[in-house]
Design a binder for these strands. Structure first.
Lengths: 151, 151
DNA sequence: TTTTCTGCAAATGCTTTGCATGGGA
DNA sequence: TCCCATGCAAAGCATTTGCAGAAAA
């Protein structure tokens, strides 16, 4: 459930950036930041809403969308879409990494590969494109699902 | 407007696969296959619909969606989403390649990099993940947009 | 002739927006 | 106190579905 070595540090960083942008730190936002900074499963808005409802019975999906939208704008969460019609949010790894999407169990695993930088550099040199950010998604079967017969 | 060396061959391949799957080749489908096999700009459903209307005034978006959905199911087009809320379709390069998405002019450039295979292999070895397909999207500025002042 | 496809309209599902109330700073 | 945030409901959009008529094979 953590994946990130420093979820607390991540949360504090997000709070800091929100304050810098003149945003208020409400209990709802604090709870959402906590979930985002600790989760490494790339939750959807609905997932976040379900978690949030445990502490705030009357909270709404709209608030979730507003907050993650805000965090996306200030660069503290990544909005990801793996082609299943709904966005997912990554708030704990704001640096380049690879996603391994298991087509069977639907899990999304993060992989840190140093060679991303080499690959990116080579690409820039060959094409003249200036890379600002990247999405590297590999779809396939995770180790656990490779042994299972039925695909 | 081509990008693919063999648009005709691509179209024939798609027709063949559709026939193999017991699908009928209608004039509308033929026109759509032609557009898809020749275009390298990753058109959206709306884009395809606009093109198609030139020849079929009464055609509908639903038909476009049904046909690209069919082609996707038989593996002849890739459905792509670059985070702008609408899907794009790639029917002329059914092999691994990199997308360079310009955040300014919104153009999507294809880049063929031999090192994709090395990168993918290294990833499999390190993580035990079996890669079936991949999405490698780089967001940034294309050569033409790098000189422009206003971002 | 049979079965699939087309295209209109309605429905769906995720996300955004408007606005009155509530709560940080 | 002054705004910003919340949360409800309604709207917005891309995509899907239902179905009657049209058209491949």
């Amino acid at each position: 459930m953590d994946g990130n070595e420093y979820p607390l540090r991540r949360m504090e960083k997000m709070i800091e950036v929100l304050r810098e942008n003149g945003c208020r730190i409400t209990p709802q936002r604090l709870a959402l930041l906590k979930i985002l900074s600790m989760s490494d499963v790339h939750p959807s808005a609905e997932d976040l809403y379900a978690h949030l409802k445990r502490d705030f019975a009357t909270t709404s999906l709209a608030t979730v969308y507003k907050t993650v939208g805000l965090l996306r704008e200030v660069g503290e969460v990544w909005e990801l879409n793996f082609g299943d019609g709904k966005n997912r949010y990554d708030g704990n790894k704001p640096y380049p990494h690879v996603h391994l999407v298991c087509v069977k169990c639907k899990k999304v695993i993060d992989a840190d590969m140093k060679s991303i930088r080499d690959f990116s550099k080579e690409l820039s040199q060959k094409t003249g494109f200036r890379v600002l950010r990247q999405r590297l998604d590999f779809f396939g079967l995770c180790q656990g699902c490779q042994g299972v017969k039925q695909l």
